[in-house]
Design a protein around this nucleic acid. Sequence first.
DNA 1: CGGGGGTTTGACGAACGTCAATCGGGGTGG
DNA 2: CCACCCCGATTGACGTTCGTCAAACCCCCG
Lengths: 248, 248
Amino acid sequence: MTGRFAPRPLEPVLRRLRTLASLSDEEVLLVRALTERRERHPPGEILVHEGETAPYPRFVISGWAARQRVLQDGRRQIFGFLVPGDPIALGLRTAEPVMGSVAAITAMETIDAEPVLNAIHGGDAPQLAAALAQAEQIERGLLLDHVVRLGRLTAYERVAHLLLELQQRLEIAGYGDAHRFPLPLTQEILADALGLSIVHVNRTLQQLRRERLIELRSGVAILLQRELLASLAAYPVAEVPSKRAASA
Amino acid sequence: MTGRFAPRPLEPVLRRLRTLASLSDEEVLLVRALTERRERHPPGEILVHEGETAPYPRFVISGWAARQRVLQDGRRQIFGFLVPGDPIALGLRTAEPVMGSVAAITAMETIDAEPVLNAIHGGDAPQLAAALAQAEQIERGLLLDHVVRLGRLTAYERVAHLLLELQQRLEIAGYGDAHRFPLPLTQEILADALGLSIVHVNRTLQQLRRERLIELRSGVAILLQRELLASLAAYPVAEVPSKRAASA
DNA sequence: CGGGGGTTTGACGAACGTCAATCGGGGTGG
DNA sequence: CCACCCCGATTGACGTTCGTCAAACCCCCG
């Protein structure tokens, strides 16, 4: 579903970056000019291997990927998901070995982001630099959210919490709206992200459906009662632009 | 126990930095010259508040702290521990709001690291810059380890895994040896780090003791059989200097 | 008309949490 | 020096959540 021919494939990337900083016209053109080294990845492909020292920087144009680690005995833990618009290995500080691999979940398209990185290092794209720094910051925040999910939320809360996060991120990328969004994840993948068994993910989803909080069919999720869901899942109420809620 | 008067208070900091990069004599002197704005913090003090925009950079000289987040209903999740030698808020990229607060667990001493940051930004301390970049990288790696612990390890494995991590880090800072190290954590704190209840942490520690894998009394932990413990906890065998194990 | 991967369900057991009481040791005031 | 106190550690009983095993089901595709 995310692999359909997009007339403006870089739209998710631009939408994402624009929520992080107000790009200049030149910077927008620079991003739109990314057309070289566009790549397709089948589901399961490992885009970045654990410990790789110089993965080349990309943007996700379509499809989903997961940052993950696999233990010797086969257990897998997913750290987070990459959705259209997200940068891969665009740490402004490069040449660092990556910890954890990146695997395509669905069929994906990515595009080389080298020109963007060059412009930033040349000092020609301050707003782009700010946007990517912000993206890194948010990624770190999402990882902390994930730790809280795994450590201190119940299965029920974890599922709801993750759905709320994904809805928010996908809306930013231009997919779906405030309630509906594509969710091309199997229950096995959800289980590996949420630290649960497949069976228990299934039961939890059933419960959320029974309670008329969500709908889930053929790769589309609908949050029927977002506020209620958020309060049940200890999910911070945040506006799309800032993504930070005031506490005091 | 970690608060005793140290004749060379910056020793843990230097030991830590030297395992990350080979500092020049000038850089060592620069670090040793850190004497201003040394601060004491009682247990429970919040060193950095969630969302704070410009926490000033410090090194931990003695004592332990935790990076954590507290939910509305009081549940707490600890993301990781800071031990002597660790930097606080020394992100080379500053002016970012911090996500998650830092709280003193024991009595602590910290020291202002501003001069170090200035030297780095002035380009005068390349190896120091490398060391701190490396420290950031390792901190990110530890966070991923923590996610795996919470998501995919059993309680038994979690406890063992964390003890192994802490032993390694404390040895680097110059505390204890390959088997013995100070562990000034209550079982409540361990529970909040490991996503478990206090009672279950207690039972798990009992089991590890019964099996003669660890000893634990009056703030000192002893790993009686490190290799065995590591294999039971899916802990990667790593050498102190590199902290990364080859897989192939 | 079969396959095959993903989903759903039931039965059962193990892991883990909760409640509540007790214990133990180090500090402190008398 | 001693009695008291308080926080943290420990223990038992019990309940719930969650995992495992295994079978059925469903749907999309070839």
